Simulated assay, not measured.
Amino acid sequence: MSTQVVLEHAAGRKYLPDRKAMRQVPDRLRLSDDGLVDIRQTDLLSKRVLLSA
């Protein structure tokens, strides 16, 4: 399971309730995972992800 999938499932829930939180978490994760894809290269900020939660 990839980090992106975990973040996608967490969208709209307690720890990732909105876009602001969704932007902050990957930035913090990137500090310990230099292989993490930039959030702008994913669909994690899309309405499909944030509204489907």
Score class of each variant (00 low, 15 high):
E8D: 05
A10N: 09
R13S: 10
A11I: 03
Q41F: 15
V6N: 05
P26L: 04
H9Q: 09
V49E: 01
R48E: 10
T3R: 08
V25M: 10
A21G: 10
P17G: 13
K20E: 15
R40M: 15
A11L: 00
V37P: 03
L51E: 15
H9C: 02
V49S: 01
S32Y: 14
R48C: 03
V5G: 04
Y15K: 10
A10V: 06
R30T: 07
D43M: 01
T3E: 02
Q24F: 07
R48H: 10
V5I: 15
S46T: 03
Q24N: 15
R28N: 12
R40K: 13
L36I: 06
L36Q: 01
L36Y: 01
S2R: 14
D33Q: 07
G12F: 06
I39P: 02
R19D: 02
S2T: 14
D33N: 11
R23T: 09
R40H: 09
L51S: 11
D34A: 13
A21D: 05
S52G: 03
M1S: 12
L50D: 02
L16Y: 08
H9K: 10
G35T: 02
V5Y: 09
E8K: 02
R19E: 08
R28Q: 13
A21R: 04
L45W: 07
K20M: 10
